[in-house]
């Protein structure tokens, strides 16, 4: 068996091993879970090291000043390891503070414009007169939903006055419609991923056609051993 064929066999095995979890938790699904965590962590580290090397070669090795800064950054990166020491835990706080500080600064820059000002501006800019009735209706619905949903999450004032009740009720209804549609969209996204895996197992192009050959045999082995093991355990009792 060539290496490429063995690769396809591995792909078929791991795909089916994940789906055996639908039957119940079993050794195959556990193998898939643990291998995934291990491989994903290894991939992350490899990606990290590659990025570091590219940074050094492409940017930080050009001048002496930059090289010193790069080495300093690496030394600070080592301080993350003091996370595991109770005594020297304070050293771990230094890279953490640098990272949190920078990301808070970046978030404050982007959040103010992208998430607050831009969203408020695009809602306020919606027209309800001088355009076709259907667009005007949609714009009006959008504005009312945005205002009511924001009002629903306003906790700085006590919502005791009579007008809050219909506002909150409408906001709840709108949110339920929104969450329902988000749910429907998520289900279909996952389903399309599942269809992708089925296409792989059936060897439909651009997937390797050899998968179709391995699929029934691997499925039979997994199913047979799982059912056989269950039967053995039952009769042993």
């Amino acid at each position: 068996m060539s290496v490429e064929l063995f690769g396809v066999l591995l792909g078929v095995f791991f795909t089916l091993a994940v789906y055996t979890f639908l039957y119940r938790e079993n050794p195959y699904s556990r193998i898939a879970e643990y291998v995934f965590i291990g491989a994903a962590t290894g991939y992350g580290i490899a990606y990290d090291l590659d990025w570091l090397k590219n940074q050094w070669v492409g940017t930080w090795s050009k001048t002496m000043e930059d090289s010193i800064l790069f080495v300093l950054a690496l030394l600070l990166a080592v301080l993350w390891y003091f996370r595991f020491s109770k005594r020297y835990f304070f050293l771990y706080r230094i890279p953490l503070a640098i990272t949190v500080g920078t990301y808070i600064g970046l978030a404050l820059r982007s959040v103010v414009f992208a998430q607050v000002i831009e969203q408020v501006r695009s809602t306020a800019a919606l027209k309800v007169v001088g355009i076709d009735p259907w667009t005007a209706f949609n714009n009006l619905v959008t504005m009312i939903i945005v205002v009511c949903t924001l009002a629903y999450f306003t906790f700085t004032v006590r919502q005791e006055a009579a007008f809050w009740k219909p506002v909150n009720k409408f906001a709840r209804y709108a949110m339920m419609i929104g969450f329902g549609s988000a749910y429907g969209y998520t289900v279909l996204t996952r389903m399309s991923l599942f269809i992708g895996r089925v296409q792989f197992l059936l060897g439909i192009p651009p997937n390797p056609p050899e998968a179709k050959m391995f699929f029934p045999w691997v499925a039979l082995v997994l199913l047979g051993t799982l059912l056989g093991y269950d039967y053995y355990k039952k009769t042993k009792k």
Binding site: I104, Q119, T123, V141, G178, F179
Partner: peptide, 22 residues
């Protein structure tokens, strides 16, 4: 329409929360 409007309101609320946290 409704989904986008709800998401927009939640985004504004989340943005305000992130600003306060910052």
């Amino acid at each position: 329409i409704p989904n986008m409007a709800v998401n927009r309101a939640i985004m504004i609320g989340g943005g305000l929360g992130a600003m306060v946290l910052g």
